[in-house]
Write a protein that binds this DNA or RNA. Structure first.
Length: 258
DNA sequence: CCTGTTCGTCTTGCCCGCGT
DNA sequence: ACGCGGGCAAGACGAACAGG
């Protein structure tokens, strides 16, 4: 998907990108040749050419695109970097970054699922997260990542980040993760079905007071959250491609090409 | 409850490309 | 060849809103 992407270039927004696509200019290579002669006469096209050359150099570097793509466009990173992608969700004792602490972090790479639990193996998270170049969350830019940053003393995972909240909002799905899941008909097992964030706080408290089963339930709740992120992102990619890309470009998402 | 981030909106101003 | 109008992106700012 990235080779078709132009919105990260200066002076190019969605409309300009679509204009190029409609003209049959559909990847970096062909845009570069289209721009070349123009760039001598025009400062705008010169800047675009410069950025394009940078793009070729960085085509395997998600952090480059991360800073240039607006939040609602970051879904485009997934098809290119899904091999080193991880879905992330944390549980805490409350919403205040400095007052509360992390209880559980769940990671799902699309196949394997791992959890890091406060008082057990939470410190190992920092080493584990280095293995990935793309992180996917829901509302992580205002919650999970600042929490992690504070908890691990200014540690920022060196990865690009897709926040599904903005990707979904761009498709017209506003509201919390649970309400969007319900809207899409993503089912959850009944034990954790009606849980809200408050339950996670309460379950940790019960576990601290000796209730072993409460921790099991909390971990299961966290697991559901993380695993559903993948379904949500793939839905979002399909919807974005269907509504925005496929009118112009014959593009197939990797998991759809079989 | 609290807080950080992105967005929505509006304005500004650049520069492309049309029309003559 | 040139001037002008319009389209579009960038910048600034305040507000909404999601997480446990």
């Amino acid at each position: 998907m990235l080779v078709h992407t132009f919105v990260h270039l200066p002076h190019v927004g969605r409309k300009t990108e679509q204009k190029y696509w409609a003209q049959g200019i559909q990847n970096w290579e062909s845009l570069l040749s289209h721009i070349k002669e123009k760039s001598l006469a025009s400062s705008r096209f010169y800047e675009i050419e410069k950025a394009l050359l940078n793009t070729f150099d960085n085509h395997r570097n998600p952090l480059y695109f991360n800073s240039l793509l607006p939040a609602r466009e970051r879904w485009r990173l997934y098809p290119d970097f899904m091999e080193n992608c991880v879905f992330l969700d944390i549980e805490t004792t409350g919403v205040s970054t400095w007052e509360n602490k992390i209880t559980v972090i769940g990671l799902y790479d699309g196949k394997e699922f791992k959890q890091f639990i406060n008082g057990f193996n939470l410190e190992e998270f920092e080493n584990e997260i280095y293995r990935y170049e793309l992180i996917v969350t829901f509302n992580g830019s205002t919650f999970d990542l600042p929490f992690i940053r504070y908890f691990f003393r200014h540690f920022d995972p060196p990865a690009a980040h897709i926040d599904l909240r903005y990707v979904m909002a761009d498709l017209g799905f506003r509201g919390g993760l649970k309400s969007i899941e319900r809207e899409l008909g993503l089912e959850r097992p009944s034990e954790v079905e009606e849980f809200s964030g408050w339950e996670a706080v309460w379950l940790w408290e019960r576990y601290r007071n000796g209730d072993r089963g409460a921790l099991e339930l909390l971990l299961e709740y966290n697991r559901q959250d993380v695993v559903n992120l993948k379904k949500l992102l793939e839905f979002a990619c399909e919807k974005h491609v269907g509504e925005y890309v496929s009118n112009f470009i014959d593009y197939r998402l990797p998991w759809k090409s079989l």
